[in-house]
Design a binder for these strands. Sequence first.
DNA 1: ACAATACTTTCGTATTTGCTAATATACGAA
DNA 2: TTCGTATATTAGCAAATACGAAAGTATTGT
Lengths: 100, 100
Amino acid sequence: MPDSLRHFKADIFQALAHPTRIAILELLGGGELSSSALIDKLGIEQSNLSQHLAVLRAKQLVTNRKVGNQVFYSVRDPLINEVLRLMRVYFQDRVKDAMG
Amino acid sequence: MPDSLRHFKADIFQALAHPTRIAILELLGGGELSSSALIDKLGIEQSNLSQHLAVLRAKQLVTNRKVGNQVFYSVRDPLINEVLRLMRVYFQDRVKDAMG
DNA sequence: ACAATACTTTCGTATTTGCTAATATACGAA
DNA sequence: TTCGTATATTAGCAAATACGAAAGTATTGT
């Protein structure tokens, strides 16, 4: 396994390593949404959302499409949602373990 | 999806978000290894490895077992290796895309 | 042209992370 | 108990991240 690939993976995980960005990707899992729709659902500052979207864009996890003066975001590769789904299963495993 | 769950996921992703820690988990995917074996394979400073292992321990991604004065590490839940495998597929998808 | 709306980027700052070097702890051998 | 090996922790510092506030860029409506 080349180091460059590990760097690539680490960068993706880094992009996923924030509750707000996870929330964004999960919301987009249901279909594309505009920035303003995301703001409404997440209840965070607009510039904050925009910064998180910039991180996701930089790592190519989302694509965006401009319509009028709105920007619609969507998840680029559904595999990312699969990763999030696996993580949910992982969480359930942990909870079960913790309960004995 | 409660915010606490997203925090939990984000913490796990944060732990995965480093090339060295990914390398550790991949190596441990083949079975348990001692710290010194990991140092040999990774070629990094001892204290550096120990710090990365501390991160993985803190997030419960690995378990350790002491034998004499050596410590053997292993991956706690194989689901983590599944996540890494998915990420490899994701990488292949990206490469294909980039090549058109 | 001007104002309003929808975003994005930049700035200042506080917090977190990662590394090396140094120190500490645990264990086995002599 | 003293020595050497294996591992963990701490300290100090540079770099990265995250947030709100402020400034910037498009685009639509009047």
